[in-house]
């Protein structure tokens, strides 16, 4: 756990949450304007999950994300510019334009290439954790997945393996109530699809308010400590909510308006901002300065990415096999 003074820690978390919010907002508009290629699965509304879980990881710890990776990647330290370039399919992208919106990541900062097969990152994370254990390293990996992934065979096979081998992996379910457009209540009888099932594998599980970054961070601290000291895996189920649709064409007509309103009132970024002010940890002016600076960073990243060169087309035929670099 970081020993930063309270204010610095809090502002650090807020900075990351605000960056994710502005990044996703900007991406959304670039799509509406038809400037950006591909599709998007945005994490707006789930910023506290990413930041709370990852804030105290070391750089050499790892994180495995999903088809909704931007928040996780930014919180783990993938650079804003390399993310933005990847979104535009540019050579300077974190995956040199070969990954795209659903496969961002950067091994240099411990962010695995994000995985767009639901549950696909779960056994891989068990493998990463097994490697840490075999190499006698004290690293851990945080593996994110959605509520929908808890119905995948990969979820069950991975949890079982992590439990029997006491692997240093933290399985984090971001339960945003919908698997694409299907309510999780229609596809799982348990109220907590990840946490309730974790118990069956003898894995300690916590259900946490995923919109409260400090509560998420406390749960993360406990789980990281367990994993680092060889006590094995933890499942954390974060209750949260997408502000937007599943992907770019989803207008969310399947979600009750009252439900949306209740969750939108619990906006993790705005609420944390109010908390910081109410605790007098920071003054309004100081927050505004931070926010302006982040907005300017995002502007610059967009400008850089738009003007950056595309990859040479010949590069499409390289990297199929790794030949040593």
């Amino acid at each position: 756990m970081s020993k930063l003074p309270e204010k610095e820690r809090m502002l650090g978390m807020y900075r990351q949450m605000y960056l994710i919010r502005k990044y996703e907002e900007r991406i959304y508009y670039l799509f509406l304007e038809g400037i950006m290629p591909g599709t998007i699965h945005q994490s707006t509304g789930q910023e506290a999950c990413a930041v709370g879980m990852l804030y105290d990881l070391r750089k050499d710890d790892y994180m495995a994300s999903t088809h909704r990776p931007a928040g996780h990647d930014l919180a783990k330290g993938v650079t804003l510019t390399s993310m933005m370039c990847e979104m535009f399919g540019k050579e300077d992208g974190c995956c040199r334009g070969k990954g795209g919106a659903m496969h961002t990541g950067d091994m240099e900062v411990g962010a695995l290439v994000a995985n767009a097969i639901v549950g696909g990152n779960m056994p891989i994370s068990a493998g990463v954790a097994l490697a840490f254990k075999m190499m006698k390293k004290d690293n851990v990996i945080v593996c994110f997945f959605g509520d929908g992934a808890t119905n995948e065979g990969a979820f069950h096979e991975s949890l079982n393996a992590a439990a029997i081998w006491k692997l240093p992996v933290i399985y984090v379910c971001e339960n945003n109530l919908y698997s694409a457009t299907t309510s999780i209540a229609l596809t799982c009888n348990k109220p907590n699809p990840a946490a309730d099932r974790a118990i069956a594998y003898d894995i300690p599980a916590e259900v946490v308010d995923g919109n409260d970054v400090l509560k998420v961070n406390e749960a993360a601290t406990r789980a990281i400590a367990r994993a680092r000291t060889g006590e094995g895996p933890t499942v954390i189920e974060l209750k949260t909510y997408r502000h937007g649709g599943h992907s770019r064409n989803d207008a969310c007509q399947y979600r009750p308006k009252e439900e949306e309103k209740a969750w939108f009132d619990r906006d993790p970024v705005k609420n944390f901002r109010s908390y910081l002010l109410s605790q007098k940890l920071v003054a309004e002016e100081e927050l505004q300065t931070i926010e302006k600076s982040i907005e300017s960073d995002v502007d610059q990243a967009v400008e850089y990415a738009q003007n950056a060169p595309f990859p040479q087309i010949e590069s499409a035929l390289t990297d199929v096999y790794w030949e040593g670099k």
Binding site: P123, I124, A126, G127, V128, A131, M134, M135
Partner: peptide
């Protein structure tokens, strides 16, 4: 038996553990 690891009958996990551990250098 740590380097000769008997696994559950979980083929998805078996292959995934290979991918993950291999990416870490095993």
């Amino acid at each position: 038996y740590e380097r000769v690891l008997n696994t559950p009958i979980s083929e998805i996990m078996l292959a995934g553990v290979c991918v993950g551990s291999a990416m870490m250098g095993m």
